[in-house]
Amino acid sequence: MTFLRQEFQAQVPNWIPFSSDFVVLASGLVEITLGLAMVFATKYKVYVGLALAVFYVLVFPGNIAQYTNGIDAFGLDTDLKRLIRLFFQPLLILWALWSSGALLALKRRK
């Protein structure tokens, strides 16, 4: 059994061609897997960081949908709170890249 599925499902944009329940379960599985990989797959940490950053980019439309559709979930019950949350997603992406060494690896490639 999973918790808060309805709140997560409320964030899945209507244009996603899969059921919101499937998207929530699949994205949760991916997120847990990537989190465990960051801890245990240290040999591949740069690649895991890149994958985590891509994952955060892919779930960003859900945050945008929550804002544009005025959906209350996770204590985000005003447009201002939902808008402020949007600015934290790029920081989360940068954090995944920085903490995994992927940001430095990308700079070195140039």
Rank of each mutant, 00 (worst) to 15 (best):
D72G: 03
Y67D: 10
S99E: 05
L36F: 15
S99W: 04
L29K: 01
L4D: 11
P61K: 00
L52N: 04
F3T: 12
R5N: 12
F22H: 10
K81G: 02
V12L: 02
W98Y: 13
R108C: 13
K43L: 12
P90T: 05
V48Y: 06
D21C: 00
L86Q: 09
V54F: 05
A65N: 13
Q89A: 03
K81R: 14
F22E: 01
G101C: 01
L4N: 14
A105M: 07
I32N: 05
V59Y: 00
V48D: 04
A65L: 04
V46F: 11
R85Y: 05
F60W: 09
L50P: 08
F74A: 02
R109G: 08
A26M: 08
L104V: 09
R109K: 15
A105H: 15
Y56C: 06
A10R: 00
F60S: 10
Q9A: 15
R85C: 03
S27L: 14
L34I: 02
S100C: 01
K110D: 15
Y67P: 09
Q11S: 10
N69Q: 13
V46Q: 12
V24G: 11
L4C: 10
L97S: 12
T33D: 02
L83A: 15
D21L: 05
P17L: 06
G28W: 01
F40C: 14
S20W: 12
A37H: 11
A41D: 10
T33F: 07
Q89W: 06
V48Q: 03
R82V: 02
S19N: 14
L97T: 09
I16C: 06
Y56G: 04
V24M: 09
G75K: 02
K110Q: 11
W15E: 09
Q89V: 13
T2S: 15
N63S: 01
T68F: 15
L106D: 15
K45C: 05
R5F: 08
G35D: 01
G28M: 10
I64S: 10
G75Q: 02
Q89G: 07
M1Q: 13
T68C: 09
W15K: 04
L4M: 13
A73V: 04
S99L: 07
T33M: 06
I93G: 00
Q11K: 05
Q6R: 06
W98G: 06
A65V: 01
F8D: 05
K107N: 11
G28Q: 08
P13H: 05
V12G: 02
S20V: 04
A73D: 01
A73K: 00
L104K: 13
F22Y: 14
L52I: 00
S20C: 03
R108D: 11
F8T: 06
V46L: 04
Q89S: 10
R82M: 09
L97W: 15
V24W: 01
G70D: 11
N14R: 10
N14L: 12
I93H: 05
A73F: 00
A37D: 07
Y47C: 07
Y56T: 03
V24Q: 03
M1T: 13
M1C: 14
A51N: 06
S20K: 14
G75M: 07
R82W: 13
I84W: 11
L86G: 05
W98Q: 07
V54Q: 04
G62H: 05
S20L: 04
D79C: 01
F18I: 08
R82Q: 10
F3M: 06
R109E: 15
W98P: 08
L76K: 01
V12M: 03
Y47W: 14
L106F: 14
A41S: 14
V30T: 11
L58E: 07
A26G: 00
W98H: 11
